[in-house]
Simulated assay, not measured.
Amino acid sequence: MSTAVKLASFVKTCWKLNLAGAMEFRFSFLITAGTMIINNAVWVFFWWLYFNRFQTVNGWGLNDVMLMWAISAGAFGLVSVFFGNALRLPSLIATGQLDAYLTQPKPILLHVLISRMSVSAIGDLTFAFLIYFWKGDVSLAGGAKFLLALLIGAMIFLGMALLLGTFAFYLGNTEGMSSMLFDSIVTFTVYPTDIFKGLGKALLFTLIPAGFISSMPIKLLRPAVDTPFLIAALAFSFALVLFALWFFHRGLRRYTSGNMTGMRM
């Protein structure tokens, strides 16, 4: 069996065990995931009230905003479900909890990321597909574009989570700072990009790359795809993830063991 096949099997096993652990307490699982669906739906309801009075906002309609929420929630859900430790990196690094992973014959960062699943994020992912099947283009081409939008969004969220988390190698416990900065990025992904102008809009496509995610409904999901935007979004998301991987492994050289004893798969 090749190394790639063994690694894929390992990842699949981790995800299965994470899901089994989440499903162990069915009622708690349903309540947690269901609450997140309701939370997202409440925000969409407020936008519905707004668009009942104003039909468009700089060319954005209600369907565009609903799909924007679907992409943001779905991309965040993908990262939190399949790479659940991405947002916990600062705490894991600062408290020496990487020790248990360093002794395993698996890629360290991958092993860390897939070792946890966020139950509430399953609600985010479910919400995304509910909105898509309700308001999106459910054709083959429409489905492919929606999945591509989720992938790009997930890569941007993952890349930013890794970058912010890696600062813990240099600055100590940056959990509060990382959480605040990441939450600000998530917040800007659920506002139409065109309401921002000048420097604010420039920041949304650079330091706070939420603009690539929030622009998806009008740049990618509409019948006429904005090809230059799509190329830029793909290039940025791939470059961000690659740089984040490099930054993490460079920071790992500064890691100080917490002398913790633990066992992993």
Rank of each mutant, 00 (worst) to 15 (best):
I152T: 11
L67P: 12
A86D: 07
M1W: 05
G251I: 09
S91W: 08
I122P: 04
I71N: 00
Y191S: 11
N18A: 09
I93D: 10
L30A: 10
I122G: 03
L17R: 09
M36Q: 09
F10V: 07
P105R: 11
L140M: 09
K219Q: 14
N39K: 06
T187F: 06
R222W: 00
G200S: 10
S118G: 06
S184M: 13
M117F: 02
L130V: 15
P105V: 10
V79A: 09
T189K: 00
Q97V: 11
A8H: 06
R254Y: 05
A141M: 13
F27L: 12
L163R: 01
T166Q: 09
I71Q: 01
K197E: 09
A4F: 01
T187G: 03
L158C: 04
F45N: 08
A144W: 13
M216F: 00
L158N: 02
M155N: 13
G262F: 15
V65F: 07
V138W: 05
T32K: 10
P209A: 03
M160F: 01
K12F: 15
K106V: 07
F83S: 15
F247W: 02
F167H: 10
A235G: 04
R264N: 13
F27Q: 11
L240Y: 02
N259R: 08
L98D: 13
K219H: 07
K219F: 01
E175T: 13
S115R: 12
V11G: 04
N58Q: 15
T261V: 10
G153S: 10
T174D: 04
F236G: 02
W15E: 03
L130A: 15
M160C: 12
P192Y: 00
Y132H: 15
N259S: 09
F29E: 10
F188V: 05
T126A: 14
T256E: 13
F212P: 14
A224I: 08
T174A: 01
M68C: 14
G258Y: 04
V190P: 00
I38M: 13
L203W: 03
I152F: 09
L113F: 03
V57Y: 05
P209D: 04
I152L: 13
A235Y: 01
A235N: 03
N52K: 12
G96K: 05
L150Y: 02
G74A: 06
R222S: 00
A41Y: 12
V241Q: 04
L7A: 12
Y50V: 13
L171H: 01
W60Y: 11
S9D: 15
G34V: 08
A239T: 14
